[in-house]
Every structure is written in structure tokens, then in C-alpha cells.
Design a protein around this nucleic acid. Sequence first.
DNA 1: AGGACGCTCACGTCGCGTGAGGGTGC
DNA 2: GGCACCCTCACGCGACGTGAGCGTCC
Lengths: 139, 139
Amino acid sequence: MKWYKIDDVAKITGLTKRTLRYYEEIGLIKPPERSNGKFRLYTDEDIEQIRKLILAREVLGFSLQELQEFLSLKEKVERHSEEYNRLSPYELQEIDQNLKQQIRMIETKMERMRKFIEELEDLRQKIQSHQNLTEKEDV
Amino acid sequence: MKWYKIDDVAKITGLTKRTLRYYEEIGLIKPPERSNGKFRLYTDEDIEQIRKLILAREVLGFSLQELQEFLSLKEKVERHSEEYNRLSPYELQEIDQNLKQQIRMIETKMERMRKFIEELEDLRQKIQSHQNLTEKEDV
DNA sequence: AGGACGCTCACGTCGCGTGAGGGTGC
DNA sequence: GGCACCCTCACGCGACGTGAGCGTCC
């Protein structure tokens, strides 16, 4: 088993050490092992979990608390496939609605981004045309 | 000329009154007129400006200071088309590079979102298959 | 003239950044 | 035993939320 110290994890994930400790403090990531109760020691699995967390955070733009709820929901579903803790049809229904809403939200954001990119491209066009008046070569 | 009070603007734009005042305080939106130096009175143009601000904020996810710089850049280019304040070819070059980078950044975000949506759809699939085991009708 | 809405402090919160002061490990 | 890294307070900051206490409008 390979162990990573906090600075390694910071470099790998791009989070700061402070952020890693903070996320642990508020229960967003599980407390890793410790060396003699002192230094934090992370495993590859820990790092993978953190990676997923980062992706969700970036995409969803939730508060960390909402993010927490969302992740626990996801885990619930994934664990549901295994023998135990089956969910009721009603719960499944609800979760499905929730997921659909998330998807719609993200699609809305993407639509806004597309429009924004168009605007930026328009701006670039304007600039290009003005450059052609003063220069002869494009780069 | 139609005048809107702050609560109207809040309802129209979706920002809170506090946020509107705060954005004014840090110079992100221009101070609107006042009734006898007391109540803030916004015009349709003010509201339009605020709308654009919100769009940029949501899409870019910058700090408010960076956002401010970005917006002034945009305005610079848009005003450049008019008779005065021409920009040097070098400045134009730089701005163009800047815009290209923004576009790339947004495209990266969109790519992440696409992947995330796929994951969510996978989750939904799992749920669907489990529902088919216990129910007969889909909604 | 009363109630809905506006104003300005000013303190609280979240998500970290940034030392200070001290311990750990090879 | 150095030196690089770790730890835990604890205070600061940006971007607002949330009253308190008071004025304004129709």
C-alpha cells in the first residue's frame, strides 16, 4: 500500500493543503490515516475520491454543503446495486427526478456558455476587421 | 423615462438588494440616479447592464475584480469601433489573445460538463433498470 | 397617518489564504 | 542534528446574508 503525504496530494490534485484540511474538517472527505496519530497519510483511493469531488464541484458550482448532499445521493445509488440497502421505488423515483434536474441545470449553463462564446467570437471578428485596416499579415 | 426602485430590479434580475448595493459599492455597476438624493432609481439601460454583468459572472466564474477588468476590456473594444479612442495594433493583438484564452477556458468547462452529464445519465440508467424489476410502468 | 419600502451601519458566514509557533522524520 | 515537511490555532478577506434603527413615499 502506497501512502501519500498531504503535500503530495496537494500537488496531484491541485488543491492546496489548507483546502484539503478544510474539506476534511467539514466532512467533505473522510479523514485519512495518520502516522502515529500525527501526519495525514492518503491512499490512492482517497485521491480518487478527491478527484471526483473536484470534478463535481467545478461542474455544479454548489456550496460545499449542497455538494455533500449530492455526493451522498450518488453514493446511495451506486451502493444500491449491491445486495443490501435496497431503495424503495418511491425513493428511486425521487432520485431520478433529482438527477434529471441536475442535468437540466447543467445544460442551461452550457447553453449560456455557448451564447457567451458567440459574443466573444463576434468581438474577435470586430478586432480582426480593424487589424486588416492597419496591417497586412495575420498570425 | 421609466424608473425602477431597487426591489423591482432585484425581482427582475434575480439578484438581492444587498448584492445590488454591494456591486455598486465596489464599482461593478454605476451608481443609479437618486430621488432627492435618497432612493436609488434605475433605468432600463441600468437593468440591461446588470443583466450582462450577471451573464458574464455566471459563465466566467471570475472574482468580481477580474470580472471588472474583463468588462472594461470588452467595452474598450466596442467603443473602439467609433471615431475616437483607437487602439494600437499591439493592443488589439493582446486583446485578441485574451479573448481566445477565455474561449478556450469556457470550452474546457463545457467539456467537463458534458462528461459529467454522461455520468449522471449512467446513474439514471442504473436506476431505470432497477425500477423495471419492481414496477411495470414508466412515467 | 400608517404600512410598505427605502437607507446606512455593522456584525455574521462560507471558503478558503496566510502566517505564527511548534513538532516530526530521514 | 539539519532541514524540509507536518501539525494546530487563529486571524484576514471576498462576496455577500441578516438584522437594527431610522427615514421616505403615496
